[in-house]
Design a protein around this nucleic acid. Structure first.
Lengths: 205, 205
DNA sequence: GTCATCATGTAAGCCGTTACATGATTGC
DNA sequence: GCAATCATGTAACGGCTTACATGATGAC
């Protein structure tokens, strides 16, 4: 249940620790999906992932280096670090880290062939494609390509049947063009997988 | 509640009567949305629309002309017609017709400015745009255009920030291209609304 | 006479949102 | 001191899918 959000969250945590509030922005900015998943989805999902042992709450590191204002005194930071706060870091933050079992689960979810005809979950997998082996990547891309080719065929057929008025036909034709655009995207990715060593796998950190 | 499915169903019924089973295929083929809405959505929606007085069940015309096998005896047809079956036509079909109140409701729903940032509901409205006045059409298109321009800007910004790996960036860039494609579609529609009398409004029947 | 398709409906459950409730931190 | 934002969580509810249950019609 909730597999695609699980995949997205675990994918973010593969990179580094996050707290819940932050995850929402990262989902939008790094994984490109959905305009803002609500906290009403994120927090329960994190709680469930923790219960299942895929993530764990960790003590938040103070991360002085990331604060661009150099005027922050080390003293204040130290005071905060010494607060009683048990599992919550500085502020009320609850920082999560992916566990080994979580990494296994992530590998399962991302290579699970379910729901390939879904554009959202395909985009998500591609945004996380650096964690896939080259052969899994190519397999995923090829499946998606076949899927899109099929849909394009059906839409082209539909757009031809002329019991449609101009507006409805225009919608169909634009839909077909959008599918064509995605096919050419997939083809580009496939080409760069096949031709050479991947220029895409540059790591973020 | 359930406004977008209501709009789609009423939109189909604006054209002609339909029964539930048929509506699913029409949703896909004429309105271009969703790969097959499930019957578990359609039948309850029709029942609710009937309760609310927006549609009514009508006696299905027997449509003998459509039966290619001439061997059907009038006797059998008469027997069936005399069956207790109250609202069901030939076979178990329940054919629905839009009411006057339903037409009002349709006009309300399609011109309601809610949920314009949703691609699905915009496509649906465009597929039904022949039922809109020219000024409502233009208004809808302009709002959508502004919306898309904003999203494009945000995505372009995102794609530039270089803490993304190549795959994630590729996802972002493709997303931006898809938005661009939709913008040019909207622009085409706007141009054909403005320049001349609409060549798109050709009626289906 | 049997099988695929047409046809309608209900029940359970998933997944997500909105609204609510609470409080800390930071900037001014 | 006050407001905006950061931060976490719960409860209610909405809409859609899946699975189930049933039966008629048409083709062969």
């Amino acid at each position: 249940m909730n597999r695609v959000l699980d995949l997205a969250i675990l994918g973010l945590l593969m990179d580094r620790d996050h707290h819940g509030y932050e995850i929402r922005a990262q989902l939008r900015d790094r994984l490109g999906l959905w305009s803002n998943v609500s906290f009403g989805s994120i927090y329960p999902a994190l709680a469930r992932l923790e219960r299942e042992g895929f993530v764990e709450a960790v003590a938040a590191e103070v991360k002085l280096a990331s604060l661009s204002t150099g005027s922050l005194s080390g003293e204040r930071a130290t005071l905060r670090a010494l607060r009683p706060a048990p599992a919550l870091g500085r502020k009320g933050r609850k920082v999560y880290r992916i566990t080994d079992r979580g990494r296994e689960q992530f590998a399962l979810l991302i290579s699970d062939p379910a729901t390939l005809d879904d554009s959202k979950s395909f985009s998500l997998r591609m945004a996380l494609a650096r964690y896939l082996t080259p052969s899994l990547r190519v397999g995923l891309l090829e499946q998606r390509r076949a899927n899109l080719a099929q849909r394009l065929f059906e839409m082209r057929q539909q757009a031809k049947t002329d019991d449609l008025d101009g507006y409805a036909r225009s919608v169909m034709e634009h839909g077909a063009k959008a599918v064509e655009l995605e096919i050419s995207w997939v083809d580009d990715l496939l080409a760069s997988e096949r031709n050479n060593q991947q220029p895409l796998a540059r790591e973020a950190n």
